[in-house]
């Protein structure tokens, strides 16, 4: 209890928030790093997932690859990348992109694949081009699952972005590493609490976005029925 109180005192002390290693700076570093990593991962993984879902080709390969990527220990990958790329933010960024990709990919291809085949065929029969089918039929229907993938990827990255501090002077992970080894437990617990709070906040935002998009009256109802080829 004493430690929790100390951590709380550290969190509310104005001096903890200012300066080069103040909470304000660490929090924004952590947030920006998370957004950039998820952004890059989404730019790569979402189009790939959508194409796979649309063509229904390569799903076996992708599920094997994402399974393997999920099993990859991020810290091990970070050390391996760090040995090649040196210290700095690039190695942790790549390691986190690998961490985020499986959820994004799975959300995208499962979402698109779950769209009723008859709906897609109807669109095709109306003379819509394949890109138009993806854009106007499949993507809106797949949106909840894509968003779900984005949500879980963000949650994983914001929590694991702690590792950015393993090789660089970045993010809330600094409080955890420094606190752990320097026995500054108030800082350690306070830093962890901030990461939890940030993760909950981001997750809350996604929950809100998901609820709003599902409520959109112009959107077609989502089919729960799935057809497996």
């Amino acid at each position: 209890m004493d430690l929790i109180q100390q951590a709380f005192a550290w969190l509310i002390a104005p001096t903890s928030w200012i300066g080069d290693s103040g909470i304000a700076r660490r929090l924004s570093e952590h947030l920006v790093f998370t957004v950039v990593v998820v952004g890059v991962a989404a730019t790569i993984a979402l189009p790939v997932g959508v194409v796979i879902g649309h063509t229904r080709r390569g799903t076996t390969l992708v599920s094997a690859a994402t399974g393997a990527a999920r099993a990859m220990p991020t810290l091990g990958l970070l050390t391996l990348l760090g040995l090649g790329l040196g210290i700095g933010l690039v190695a942790p960024a790549i390691a986190l992109i690998v961490l985020a990709s499986p959820s994004l990919l799975a959300g995208a291809y499962a979402g698109v694949q779950s769209v009723d085949r008859q709906t897609v065929d109807a669109a095709r029969a109306m003379g819509m081009s394949e890109p138009a089918i993806i854009r106007t039929v499949e993507l809106p229907l797949a949106a909840p699952l894509i968003l779900g993938g984005l949500r879980s990827a963000t949650l994983q990255v914001v929590a694991t972005a702690t590792l950015a501090a393993y090789t660089s002077n970045t993010g809330l992970g600094r409080y955890i590493f420094a606190g752990l080894k320097g026995r500054e437990y108030a800082e350690l617990i306070g830093g962890s609490a901030l990461i939890v709070a940030l993760a909950l906040l981001l997750d809350g935002i996604f929950a809100l976005v998901q609820r709003v998009t599902l409520r959109d009256p112009h959107r077609l109802p989502v089919t729960t029925e799935r057809h497996h080829p």
Partner: peptide, 17 residues
């Protein structure tokens, strides 16, 4: 510059770089 591997290979790499 914080490098969390206790003077291990990442630290040596950073020196060499």
């Amino acid at each position: 510059a914080p490098i969390e591997d206790g003077g291990g290979p990442l630290t040596v790499k950073a020196l060499q770089d």
